[in-house]
Design a binder for these strands. Structure first.
Lengths: 108, 108
DNA sequence: GAGGTATTTGGTAGTTTAGCCAAATTGGCA
DNA sequence: TGCCAATTTGGCTAAACTACCAAATACCTC
């Protein structure tokens, strides 16, 4: 793999890596359902330190998956690209596939 | 987030995390184009140690994204779920979106 | 069975990530 | 201006990840 190809896949990986954490997946899911949320509300839902949530949000924003808007004392985050929701669909189908194979193992 | 919800998002994250590495993305891409490849061929293409490639393949297999078949001295890997290719499409559109926003910044 | 190739696994060092606390920053309001 | 709430950032530690080398396995051929 030459340097250029390497760079291409690294750029792609960065975006996928941003989604590769349970708290961040939860946040994306929540934003998809609710349009937008402030950091304090997300912190309450996720259940970790606010500084941790803020860092997760920074990762997602840095990847270009979400965007923020300051309104008064709060910062609201929302999805910038809807297609990340397709990830969920595929992930479900992989899990379903895994489960059915597991089933076969048990039966046989 | 209660324990059950946590577990749900962890399971999803595991699958996405399996895709979140440039070498693994390359491998998935390659398998999508070529149907199947043995470890030695992938090693040659990726350009790292064979043991490293083998570990990457194990991660993808463990997530249920690829499957293997031993034929003679070689092990062939292939995609188990085509939908992971949708990831690429979305990633491209995120990158395009990022690029156009960058453009706006330069102009303004 | 001996030797050779393909692959996986054990061990290890360096890097990155995630979480918390504390401190700094920002905007709103008395 | 001075205080309060919301958010981000710095500092630190523990855990996870990645890559390499070397050793163990598995399979084929002679």
């Amino acid at each position: 793999m030459d340097a250029k190809t390497q760079a291409k896949y690294e750029a792609r990986a960065k975006i996928i890596k941003a989604m590769a954490h349970p708290a961040r997946l939860f946040i994306v899911d929540e934003l998809s359902k609710n349009g937008e949320r402030c950091v304090c509300k997300l912190t309450e839902m996720v259940g970790t330190d606010m500084s941790t949530v803020s860092r997760h949000l920074a990762v997602l924003k840095n990847a270009g998956i979400i965007e923020d808007e300051k309104r008064g004392a709060q910062v609201y985050y929302r999805l910038r690209v809807r297609c990340v929701l397709d990830f969920f669909e595929c992930v479900e189908s992989v899990m379903k596939c895994n489960a059915s194979d597991q089933q076969k193992l048990l039966v046989s």
